[in-house]
Amino acid sequence: METELTLRIDGQDHHLTIDTRTTLLDALRERIGNTSAKKGCDHGQCGACTVLTDGRRTLSCLTLAVTQGGAEITTAEGLGQDGGLHPVQQAFIDHDAFQCGYCTPGQVCSAVGMLAEYADGWPSAVTEPGTTAELDHDEIAERMSGNLCRCGAYANIVPAVQAAAPRREGTNAGGAR
């Protein structure tokens, strides 16, 4: 069944007539020609398709495009400002936090969304209940675990994210490991 829809991707509107079955990921990759978000599993099991929806990290492979009219979608391609890279992207390059690069746009979007969640005081599964988390190795690793990397770049991803995290006053986030 076809339907009309306007998707706002990386600050640009795209008017489409699409099949209601089309996921946001396939709309991006197969209709709009934005292949920044990757398809690793198509079932929510790898994180390669992570985008930001109104600033929150989500999986575009399990999102039907028809539900996204009016949302602001950001892919890794649209993260940077004025043609430059986002600090998280630069940190990934500096720390060599990828090899094949296929999980990378998803990792980067996920990290940006995760840092915003952290800034909002969200806990994670490894946060000691009743406390506010420091963004140490274990916190970052747990919060980034929805993004699989088969190349095994985790040991570089964690320090990259740590380096890109805005410092909080009076803490030593960026300390451990």
């Binding site: 990759r29 292949t35 920044s36 940077g80 890279l85 992207q89 990934f92 390059i93 690069g101």
Partner: peptide, 20 residues
């Protein structure tokens, strides 16, 4: 650093399915 780094962190490096 990797010469293809910028293309990979932005997702603009075209993999096989993505070639326009």
């Amino acid at each position: 650093a990797r010469r293809d780094g910028v293309r990979k962190v932005t997702g603009t490096a075209p993999y096989a399915y993505e070639h326009p």
